[in-house]
Design a binder for these strands. Structure first.
Lengths: 142, 142
DNA sequence: TCATTTGGTTGATAAAATCAACTATATCAA
DNA sequence: TTGATATAGTTGATTTTATCAACCAAATGA
């Protein structure tokens, strides 16, 4: 045997644990969103003048899926879209007041999960972990 | 801002990259299985006298989901189930000859993905990564 | 200016995950 | 020993996510 299976397996387990835990945290906070909604909100929060396409690129998901997630977020009154000036095919996504509020609650919930997840780990370990994960992702790009 | 979003985000990205890459590798090898099938096979390979319940416990998935995956693997003639002697409610899962063959091909494909994924990383980094991931998973158990 | 590419939407469908109910066997405590 | 409770596994129904293909309108570029 080699390290192949362990890494993939470890990753799956970690993701599953994360999914379950964050779901609980989110439910507990009655925010009514799923993991992909949350990712979208983060990307919108992190990119000035964010478009649906930015989300597609940053998540590597199907654009149909993103279009629907964005639609739902608009339906939930968490974000708005307005026509882009530069490119008339695009729409700029931004938070509504409620979206902003909710996003803050969300950051809080995540903060809690994060603290739970990072117990017994030093900042150096966490940093190294993130670095390796990024490198791995990059290695698989192409 | 703190490290909350980055870690979750990094993890999502990594998993998505992995999913996409392993799927390509598996398709390329014409094995016709998905990620959960593969996980099941690994668990069967790794546990002597493996039962469906072992898979449920190790993956944290719904038992209905596992029951169906197992059924499919049996349908594909990759595994067999036989009644357990100790517990008449259980069935022991094991590879068929074809299952064994395929599992070897699979290990090969994974080996390739693994090499790709671990480029530019030292064994120490990889080891540390796995350790941290395990600790994180454990932190979220309960 | 015409062909090609890109951002976004939608319909259809497939794949994955979850919930609830149920059977049969096991286990445990009175 | 028996009766209550828990466990392993199966199945049906449903929901959630993900993917594919076709399409429109605007942008790009030879």
């Amino acid at each position: 045997m080699n390290t192949v299976k362990p890494i993939a397996n470890t990753l799956f387990t970690l993701m599953q644990s994360y999914r379950v835990t964050i779901r609980k945290a989110i439910n507990a906070n009655e925010l009514g969103l799923n993991a992909m909604h949350v990712r979208c909100l983060h990307i919108i929060a992190g990119n000035k003048g964010c478009t649906a396409n930015d989300i597609v690129n940053q998540t590597q998901r199907d654009k149909a899926q993103i279009a629907r997630l964005v639609k739902e977020l608009i339906g939930l009154n968490l974000i708005d879209k307005r026509a882009s000036e530069e490119d008339k095919r695009s729409y700029i996504l931004s938070f509504t007041v409620q979206g902003n509020e909710l996003f803050n609650k969300l950051l809080n919930a995540e903060q809690q999960v994060n603290e739970l997840m990072c117990q017994n780990l030093t900042p150096q370990q966490i940093q190294a972990f993130s670095n390796v994960a990024s490198i791995m992702s990059q290695n698989m790009q192409v």
